[in-house]
Structure formats: C-alpha cells, structure tokens
Computed example of a mutant assay.
Amino acid sequence: MDLTRELLRAHTRSQATKIADYVNDNPTHFKVLVDTFLKGPYRITQRASWPLNLCVERNPTLVKPHLKRILRHLQEPGIHDAVKRNTMRFLQFCTIPKSLHGNVADLCFQYLQSKKEAIAIKVFAMTVLSNIIEKEPDLKKELKIILEDQLPYASPGFTVRAHRVLKALGNS
C-alpha cells in the first residue's frame, strides 16, 4: 500500500481505519507510517496522525522502537503543531520507558508552560505527565503548581482536564 497516496485520498474515519488495519501489528508497516508522519508536509502529517493513533491505541508496543526518533523530531525548531499534538495524544496510551521519562517530562513541562502552545497540546501533555508521575512521583508537586497557576486564566478544555489531573494527583 502506498501510504502517502492513501492518506491523500480522504481524511475520514473509514480511511484511517483502513490504513490502521493494513498496518495492524506489522512493525515494518508501522515504521513506514511513522516515517510518513514525521516527513510531512503538514497535510500528510495531519492525516497520518489518525491511523497512527489508532495503531498505538490498539498496540502501544509498536511505537516503542520509534520513541527516541519521534522525541528528537519534537525538539527540532519550527515543528508543526500537528506533530506535537498528535505525538502527545498517542503518548497517552504508551508505557514510556524509564530511560525516556526525563526527556518526555521536560517536553511536556515546556508545552504546559509555553504561552504559545495550542490548548490541545497542553491538555495531552498534562495527561502524559500524570502517567509519568505514577512512576516518578517527585514530579507531582511541580505539575500541581503549574496547573493551579494556570487555572484562573485557562480555557474550558484546559480547565476540565486540569481538574481531572489534579484530582488524580490527590492532595499530597
């Protein structure tokens, strides 16, 4: 299957599902999808993100061999919001290796504290951080401070997710 051609054909649930079904649990097909997602341009990245997310939701272990490369890509200057947003979205479903906790947490904290980042990026970063905090509880206080500081000025979407995360973090 020519993924780029298929991605350009339509941006629908059925097309995303068709591509995700093609990739299935095949690491080679998944690598091609990741490469396509990272290569761009924007429209391809946007459309590749949906089947990529479906694949990671179905089988989160597929993305593990690609995480370092994806994280390096996120640190490049001028990276499009679609890449940030969709990467944070699928990281919610992954068990991030302990060796990458620091890198992922740093990125998430950067996104949360930036006034320029889109709300969706911040919301997904919040959830990724709360998942990391289950294994790295020392980060809990920092996340709580950042969220509580932003709540009075936050959008409704940010506020709902922040309250949910704060509740999950508890009072400690």
Rank of each mutant, 00 (worst) to 15 (best):
F90N: 01
E57R: 13
P77E: 07
Y42G: 04
F109C: 03
R43H: 10
M88E: 06
Q113N: 12
Y111L: 00
L107G: 00
T28K: 11
N24S: 15
L67F: 04
H66D: 04
I119V: 15
R72Q: 13
D35V: 08
K31F: 10
K122G: 01
R58N: 15
V23K: 01
V104E: 09
V34G: 01
A82M: 04
K64I: 13
N59Q: 14
F90D: 05
G40D: 05
V23M: 07
A105H: 08
A120D: 12
D25K: 14
L62C: 06
L52F: 11
T28Y: 05
G102Y: 14
P97G: 06
A125W: 06
T28G: 04
M88V: 03
I79S: 08
D25G: 01
H80T: 08
G78P: 00
T36I: 09
V83E: 07
A48R: 06
P77Y: 05
T95P: 00
L38E: 03
C94E: 09
R58H: 13
A125P: 03
E117K: 05
R72W: 00
V83F: 01
T95F: 12
L91N: 06
L112Y: 04
L91I: 04
H101G: 04
F109Y: 11
A82D: 08
A105S: 13
E117H: 06
M126H: 03
V34Q: 02
P65Y: 12
R72D: 15
V56A: 08
H66W: 13
A118M: 13
K68T: 12
V83Y: 00
E117M: 07
S130K: 12
N103T: 15
I119G: 06
C108N: 05
A120F: 02
L129W: 04
